[in-house]
């Protein structure tokens, strides 16, 4: 998927005011969400005092098993839910402030689009919601439909679309306003391997264009491939936060790579590499996979509930 270069946007896009924390695009402070029933009784504490910062130009991943609070976090940031306590700021504005949406693009977990509209009508509808003039809408619609390779199906109603096609038109609507912040909920769900690769390339390209991406995903390999920083949530609590490369580095293990050793020599290598004139190729700490890290955190959280994360830089 070849995304169009930044187009000139409506006046609201021209001079974005800087977020009140310098380069901080998203900031949550003590963000808590408790779901209650009709009578006001507490049902679930979905998010517990989340403190988070997402900075301009980074790809930030929210990870966690089902029910960990990552989708709740995203919905709170979008203003679809209201916090029970604490605060969520996006571009320095309260998350319930509608005007913040002018600079946000949102791709929901599933393609929650109007199935009776066709691709053109869909993008035109969302373009109008951004108050985009007709000429600019037409230009963006053409660009986006081509970029998601749906030119051949632009007049077909979405109810006739496959899941992958619906996902692509969903992505196009998320980008209709050339947003500064893109929130992607499970962006690779429903995509085939090629589509997944294209989606990951797109995310990286958006980052390269200076945009900020917040995504949550179950697919750890995808997160590992594209995210600069991640937050791992478990049962509504933040368990791990930091740069992906740092989080995946195993600090207390040294890894040595060597070449030209006989089988015998390899047996003794742990004690006397140099005595056998082997060439030391590298010596560093090995990295684990995100999957291992994730499972370790889940196991640790179950064994020691309540432990909270410190950001690892």
């Amino acid at each position: 998927m070849e995304m169009p270069a930044t187009s000139e946007m409506a006046s609201t896009q021209d001079a974005p005011s800087e977020a009140s924390g310098g380069d901080v695009i998203i900031q949550t402070q003590n963000l808590t969400k408790v779901y209650r029933d009709f009578w006001g009784r507490q049902k679930v504490r979905a998010l517990k005092a989340l403190d988070l910062e997402v900075r301009r130009g980074e790809i930030f991943g929210l990870l966690g098993p089902n029910g960990s609070g990552k989708t709740t976090t995203m919905k709170l940031l979008l203003g679809l839910l209201f916090p029970t306590s604490g605060q969520a700021l996006v571009f320095g504005k309260d998350a319930t402030d509608v005007s913040k949406n002018e600079r946000i693009g949102y791709l929901p977990e599933e393609s929650y689009l109007y199935r009776f509209l066709n691709a053109e009508e869909t993008l035109d509808f969302y373009g109008r919601l951004f108050d985009m003039p007709a000429a600019l809408r037409r230009q963006r619609i053409d660009e986006l439909i081509e970029s998601v390779n749906l030119g051949w199906a632009r007049r077909r109603q979405l109810k006739e679309y496959s899941k992958g096609m619906a996902r692509r038109i969903g992505l196009a609507q998320a980008l209709i306003n050339d947003p500064d912040l893109i929130m992607l909920d499970e962006p690779t769900t429903g995509l085939d391997p090629i589509g997944t690769r294209e989606m990951k390339d797109l995310i990286l390209r958006l980052r390269d264009q200076g945009k900020t991406v917040l995504m949550c995903s179950h697919l750890l390999a995808d997160v590992q491939d594209v995210c600069d920083r991640i937050a791992i949530l478990y049962q509504g609590e933040l368990k791990e936060l930091g740069r992906v490369d740092r989080l995946l580095t195993v600090q207390d293990v040294t890894q040595i790579q060597a070449r030209g050793l006989s089988l015998e020599a390899q047996d003794e290598i742990k004690t006397v590499i140099q005595r056998h004139q082997g060439t030391l190729m590298s010596m560093n700490n090995p990295t684990s996979t995100l999957e291992e890290l994730f499972l370790n955190i889940v196991r640790d959280s179950e064994a020691r509930p309540g432990r909270r994360a410190q950001e690892k830089q």
Binding site: L78, L80, V98, S99, Y106, Y112, L113, G170
Partner: peptide
Amino acid sequence: NRTIYTVMTKPV
């Protein structure tokens, strides 16, 4: 159907 999600996350 949650189609409202894609509407209310716009500046509407």
